[in-house]
């Protein structure tokens, strides 16, 4: 019998929210993931590790759903999550997906495009997360991002 939603781990919520078999976005799981990550002290750190792993999935639909979770949480989960996403520890994982030197040659095009889009939106929406701007500028300089 499945544990009641309240006690389910962040991992089970992200697995349900990014399941490649989902016919459409699982907004309830996405919402629950956002709420739960904010409740635990280590929530933002664990959430970014889980998201990085999903975003690096070779399965396009799984990675795109993970990016939707990331975008939703960046809009709803507040400062603690922003500062965790705004660390190179997480940004480097996104960079690996778009960079040909790492996963870029195998990663799905749609996923790479979405990563660049969300990073760009954060440079506008979160100007005080300066590392995001640094990472984005570096990608532009290296020609990984062609605007």
């Amino acid at each position: 019998m499945a544990a009641p939603p309240e006690e389910e781990s962040l991992e089970s919520h992200i697995n349900r929210a990014t399941n490649p078999l989902n016919r459409e976005l699982e907004w309830e799981s996405i919402q629950t993931f956002c709420e739960k990550l904010n409740k635990d002290l280590e929530g933002p750190q664990l959430a970014t590790r889980l998201l990085a792993h999903k975003i690096q999935s070779p399965q396009e639909w799984e990675a795109l759903q993970a990016l939707t979770v990331l975008e939703t949480c960046m809009k709803n989960c507040g400062k603690r999550f922003h500062s965790e996403v705004g660390k190179f520890r997480f940004l480097n994982e996104l960079i690996k997906v778009v960079s040909p030197k790492y996963l870029g040659t195998r990663a799905p095009e749609k996923v790479k495009l979405k990563i660049v889009e969300v990073m760009y939106s954060w440079t506008i929406g979160l100007p005080d997360e300066t590392k995001i701007a640094d990472a984005y500028q570096m990608l532009k300089k290296q020609g990984v991002v062609k605007m």
């Binding site: 002290l41 750190q45 603690r80 500062s83 660390k87 190179f88 520890r89 940004l91 480097n92 960079i95 690996k96 960079s99 040909p100 030197k101 790492y102 590392k131 640094d134 990472a135 570096m138 990608l139 290296q142 990984v144």
Partner: peptide, 15 residues
């Protein structure tokens, strides 16, 4: 006791 959130980080990946 609430531990202070860890704000250690890595360097930016060079591509």
């Amino acid at each position: 006791a609430t531990s202070f959130p860890d704000d250690s980080d890595e360097d930016l990946l060079k591509v």
